[in-house]
């Protein structure tokens, strides 16, 4: 099985469901005017909308596909956009899918991840907690007043990813429809995180003893991880 194949299938099934029920709205942002970059501090009193506050549900997921199927330039909103939210704080799910070729998995992952982490937009603050797979954002009243939309965020993430070598396309899904809808992403997010953690462990600890590794179950399922392990072990042996 390819690295994030299971999570990709899960997300695509969710997308089909949301679109089928009419709760998923698609936006093509390929020709969208970019929202300006800017400082990322938004205090509570300046906030028009908070997404994924630590006391609310929040799930963030970053995966890639080498086998095609990425709907390049597409942002899908499941739930209200910034101007449509009925309350000042909403649960938040964010799925970022990059498409292309990722030959050096660890370096590729770090590049893709950093492109997401380093996306900074004026009037928008974003904070990420990788171990909780959560993301916490605030949209300032000023930005909301100037028409900031989650589609602008999606477009910025897609642009940032496509500036990387090897990335040929990207799509983003945002879920604000409610706790239950956001939590539908939990399985895919946890699975992706386990794969990333296993990969990080291989590279950082250089320990390839499967018998003592807590990620053995992950590698047993995701064959690409075994290939990475084999490549690293051979590299260590020849070094």
């Amino acid at each position: 099985m390819a690295l994030f194949e299971e999570q990709l299938t899960e997300v695509r099934n969710l997308l089909d469901g949301w679109r089928g029920s009419g709760s998923g709205r698609d936006f093509d942002c390929s020709a969208r005017e970019p929202w300006p970059d800017g400082p990322s501090l938004v205090l509570e009193e300046e906030t028009a909308l908070e997404l994924g506050n630590p006391s609310a549900a929040s799930i963030s997921l970053l995966i890639w596909s080498e086998g095609g199927g990425v709907e390049d330039g597409k942002v899908t909103l499941v739930g209200p956009d910034v101007a449509e939210a009925a309350s000042a704080s909403v649960p938040f799910g964010q799925v970022v899918i990059a498409g292309g070729t990722f030959p050096d998995e660890y370096e590729s992952y770090r590049d893709v991840r950093d492109a997401v982490y380093d996306t900074r937009l004026a009037g928008f603050s974003v904070r990420t907690m990788p171990s909780r797979q959560s993301v916490w954002c605030r949209v300032s009243r000023d930005a909301a007043g100037r028409g900031f939309s989650l589609v602008d965020l999606g477009a910025a993430l897609i642009d940032s990813l496509k500036s990387l070598d090897g990335v040929s396309g990207a799509q983003v899904v945002f879920v604000t429809a409610g706790v239950d809808e956001v939590k539908k992403l939990a399985g895919a997010a946890a699975g992706a995180q386990r794969i990333v953690d296993a990969m990080m462990k291989m590279y950082s600890e250089e320990n390839y003893d499967c018998e003592t590794c807590e990620y053995q179950d992950v590698c047993d399922t995701v064959m690409d991880l075994k290939k990475i392990r084999q490549k690293l072990a051979e590299g260590k042996g020849s070094g």
Partner: peptide
Amino acid sequence: AGGRDEKDLAVSLDYLLAEALTEQGN
């Protein structure tokens, strides 16, 4: 827990510091 490089730790710290802020007006 391991498995976190400096970039992950830096963004985690940014998140946790934001959680630790008690805000009152400006």
